[in-house]
Design a protein around this nucleic acid. Sequence first.
DNA 1: TAGCGACGAAACGGTATCGTCCCGTCCTTG
DNA 2: CAAGGACGGGACGATACCGTTTCGTCGCTA
Lengths: 185, 185
Amino acid sequence: MLREDVTAAIRTAVFEELAEAGFARMSIEGIARRAGVGKTAVYRRWKSKLALVLDLVTAVAAQGLPVPRTGSLHGDVRALLEVAAGALRHPVASRVIPELLVESARNPEMARAIKAALLDSRDGVAAVVVREAVARGELPEGTDPDRALDLIAGPLYWRLAVVGGDLPEGYLDGLAVSAVAALTA
Amino acid sequence: MLREDVTAAIRTAVFEELAEAGFARMSIEGIARRAGVGKTAVYRRWKSKLALVLDLVTAVAAQGLPVPRTGSLHGDVRALLEVAAGALRHPVASRVIPELLVESARNPEMARAIKAALLDSRDGVAAVVVREAVARGELPEGTDPDRALDLIAGPLYWRLAVVGGDLPEGYLDGLAVSAVAALTA
DNA sequence: TAGCGACGAAACGGTATCGTCCCGTCCTTG
DNA sequence: CAAGGACGGGACGATACCGTTTCGTCGCTA
């Protein structure tokens, strides 16, 4: 039986290595070293670096994303932004997520896993939010959920993950208002 | 005297390697191989991989960005989006830009160069556009140019560079309208 | 036409990681 | 208390780059 504490130590080490060095620079040896574990323990569980990361990503994806149901488009958007900002402000996640997104441009398997983990679930959430807003008459029929996600997630991702900017007091509030205005324009 | 055709071949090879393998995986040997050149030719010009890429980035940055002056906020935003979309649709640039942005999260020197190349100049452009829109009365005084850039560039970057989506007919037009609505909200 | 210098190729010793294998220890289970 | 198995450690040959050096070729220029 594989020891669960060893498995957990490896998982943690992978996230840290991924944040610090990135997927390309990350090595099995480095992971084992950081986890205080033999290489054997890693290879006993996963057959490659890619399989390891893919496993972690899908594990995170399985948790799913809560769908906000605040009763108004603005409320839903605000809640979505709050969740996204929480993730992107996490010092490890904020480096791991862009790293994996860039890596997935070169790796179809990675792309599939990442899309399932972040985009589809988030997209699913966006689709639900849009559908309910349409039902309430807050958005015109035929509103594209993908485009809605662009307008909601794009500015926040750009600021937090791309430019590396901070998140001033009240920024999310203003962004929610702007996103709703953009959606209804 | 260093031969200019050799230098050009190396530059081209760097961009291609950067797009294909990424900064971390890219090697001087690989660059020389792709350029059909000896390693010596590369080391004769640059002292490291980082110096090489930094040099290319600042060279691109030196070209600067045209400031749109269409006379209206909507026109300026639309023009900005057009320029950005042109860059992000280029098959090499669309991979190189996110790659370097992610790399710059780990490399202060890279971060400085990239910021100067893409963000500051684009930010400068955004600042000009915002200032003129304020002067025309299209935007309230005190509008934050950074936030404006988030709202304009964010959705497009998210779609083209992060999610890897396409650019449907008329998307930029709609995005320009949405961005203006978001700015004036 | 003679010489200088950049060129491509290739070899150098050095480092890092690969994935595999073996060893001796320790914990758990039966 | 005996046995099996996962453990950490480390050696293994193989591969890929590192940055440097040497060599012979080729194209300028004086």
